[in-house]
Simulated assay, not measured.
Amino acid sequence: MSLPSLRHRFGHRIRELRLATGMTQEAFADRCGFARTYMSRIETGGANPSLDAIKVLADALKVDLSILFTDI
C-alpha cells in the first residue's frame, strides 16, 4: 500500500492545525481570504496551493511555515 500523496498529507496537516484552533473551515477560509471551497480542496488534497498560499495558511494559523510540514 502506498503512502497518501504529499498534497493529501499536507491537507490533513492543515485540517489538523485548523481544528486545534477551534476554527470552522469557513472561518479559517475567511481569515485566509480564500473561498471555503478552495479551503476544502486544500484540506482534502484536491488543490495544490502555491507557495504564497502556503504562507497565508501559516500566517492565519499563527505558526512558522515549518510547522505545516512537520509530521507529514
Results as ranks from 00 to 15, higher is better:
Met1Thr: 13
Met1Glu: 09
Met1Ala: 14
Ser2Phe: 11
Ser2Gln: 15
Ser2Ile: 11
Ser2Met: 13
Pro4Asn: 13
Ser5Ala: 09
Ser5Met: 06
Ser5His: 10
Arg7Gly: 03
Arg7Asp: 11
His8Lys: 15
Arg9Val: 06
Phe10Glu: 02
Phe10Arg: 03
His12Ile: 11
Ile14Leu: 12
Ile14Pro: 00
Arg15Lys: 14
Glu16Ser: 07
Glu16Asp: 11
Glu16Asn: 08
Glu16Gly: 05
Leu17Pro: 01
Leu17Met: 06
Arg18Asp: 05
Arg18Gln: 07
Arg18Val: 05
Arg18Ser: 09
Leu19Lys: 15
Leu19Trp: 11
Leu19Pro: 06
Ala20Glu: 08
Ala20Gln: 12
Thr21Cys: 08
Thr21Arg: 11
Thr21Glu: 05
Gly22Gln: 05
Gly22Trp: 08
Gly22Thr: 10
Thr24Phe: 07
Thr24Tyr: 01
Thr24Arg: 02
Gln25Ala: 13
Gln25Cys: 09
Gln25Lys: 12
Phe28Asn: 06
Phe28Lys: 03
Asp30Ala: 15
Asp30Phe: 12
Asp30Met: 11
Arg31Thr: 08
Cys32Thr: 07
Cys32His: 04
Cys32Pro: 04
Cys32Trp: 04
Gly33Tyr: 09
Gly33Leu: 05
Gly33Val: 04
Gly33Asn: 03
Gly33Trp: 06
Phe34Tyr: 03
Phe34Gly: 00
Ala35Met: 12
Arg36Ile: 11
Arg36Met: 11
Thr37Arg: 06
Thr37Gly: 04
Tyr38Leu: 10
Met39Ala: 06
Met39Cys: 09
Met39Asp: 00
Met39Thr: 00
Ser40Asp: 08
Arg41Glu: 07
Ile42Val: 14
Thr44Met: 07
Ala47Leu: 02
Ala47Gly: 01
Asn48Tyr: 10
Leu51Arg: 08
Leu51Thr: 14
Asp52Asn: 14
Asp52Gly: 13
Ala53Trp: 00
Ile54Val: 15
Val56Tyr: 06
Leu57Met: 07
Ala60Thr: 08
Leu61Tyr: 04
Leu61Val: 10
Lys62Val: 14
Val63Gln: 03
Val63Ser: 02
Leu65Ser: 06
Leu65Glu: 04
Leu65Ile: 15
Ser66Pro: 04
Ser66Ala: 15
Ser66Thr: 15
Ser66Tyr: 14
Ile67Tyr: 07
Ile67His: 08
Ile67Asn: 02
Leu68Trp: 04
Leu68Ser: 04
Leu68Gln: 07
Leu68Val: 04
Phe69His: 01
Phe69Lys: 02
Thr70Ile: 15
Asp71Ser: 13
Ile72Asp: 03
Ile72Arg: 11
